[in-house]
């Protein structure tokens, strides 16, 4: 992994006119956005504004009603989740998802990239370097001491850290994080933000983050998109978003 600090303006992820409805509910309505490579981009919006649906649409969890999603310039809206994951785009879940009956190291090992997996590799054992890397990353998120515990026995916050480490193990190019700090002890949040930033700067992973905690997202992201009622309400730098009347109204329950 090479740290990339390119200043390309081309989006690593480009969404155009993304629309998704569930029955009569329009969860995403004609959304266009751009996640530039090597940066941290934020996605905010009140509850039910369609943030998680947009994530699901991007990673191929459900088919779009209309619109296009491009990853590295390639149309991916017709691909399925595992194919997109193998291209290097991963997401973490709001309700943390780990392999709960396996220990932390096993969780990490099974998360190795499956991009170039051959049939022969399926039946081989893990190389010592892989185990080494798994332990390094567990150390990175502060779970090294817990590495041999069954992951389902960890606290929610620790599971969240493990899920983040698993995502890093997969060597993604872009990581979509759905509320990474929700449910985490406030004293640990700063440590987590620091790790997110290091993953971005040192490992060169582009981040696209849904976050409810305004203090977190304003300090982390360089560019923020705000959704409300399934539509893109505003976008811009944290400062611009913070002072945007429409965003304030949407969050404080104003009826726009």
């Amino acid at each position: 992994m090479v740290a990339t600090s390119t200043s390309t303006t081309n989006g690593l992820i480009e969404c155009q006119g993304v629309t998704k409805t569930f029955g009569g509910v329009i969860a995403n309505n004609d959304i266009a956005l751009n996640v530039p490579e090597g940066r941290i981009t934020g996605l905010i919006g009140p509850n039910g504004s369609g943030k998680t649906t947009l994530f699901n649409s991007i990673v191929g969890y459900h088919p779009l009603d209309s619109g296009s999603v491009k990853f590295k310039g390639k149309e991916i809206s017709k691909l399925r989740v595992p194919q997109i994951a193998r291209m290097g785009m991963l997401r973490t879940f709001q309700q943390t998802r780990i392999y709960s009956k396996m220990n932390c190291v096993e969780n990490m090992l099974v998360s190795v990239p499956h991009r170039r997996e051959t049939y022969r590799m399926m039946f081989s054992e893990y190389a010592p370097e892989v185990t080494e890397r798994a332990e390094e990353l567990l150390e990175f998120v502060g779970l090294y001491q817990k590495r041999l515990l069954i992951s389902g026995d960890l606290s929610f916050g620790q599971q969240k850290l493990l899920e983040f480490a698993m995502a890093l193990m997969n060597e993604p190019e872009v990581l979509l994080l759905d509320e990474p700090t929700a449910g985490i002890n406030p004293t640990l949040i700063n440590g987590l933000i620091d790790r997110l930033r290091r993953a971005n700067e040192q490992m060169g992973i582009t981040l696209f983050v849904i976050e409810h905690n305004m203090r977190v997202i304003m300090g982390l992201a360089e560019h923020i998109y705000c959704l409300a009622n399934g539509k893109l309400l505003a976008e811009g730098t944290p400062d611009k978003i913070r002072n945007d009347k429409r965003v304030i109204d949407a969050y404080l329950g104003g009826h726009a």
């Binding site: 994951a85 991963l90 998802r97 709960s100 396996m102 099974v110 399926m122 893990y126």
Partner: peptide, 21 residues
């Protein structure tokens, strides 16, 4: 082998396993 861990992962959370490629 890797196979063993992968099918355990499918048992614990298949959607997550798909999501990890």
């Amino acid at each position: 082998t890797r196979f063993g861990l992968a099918i355990n992962a499918i048992r614990d959370d298949e959607e997550k396993a798909e999501g990890m490629g």
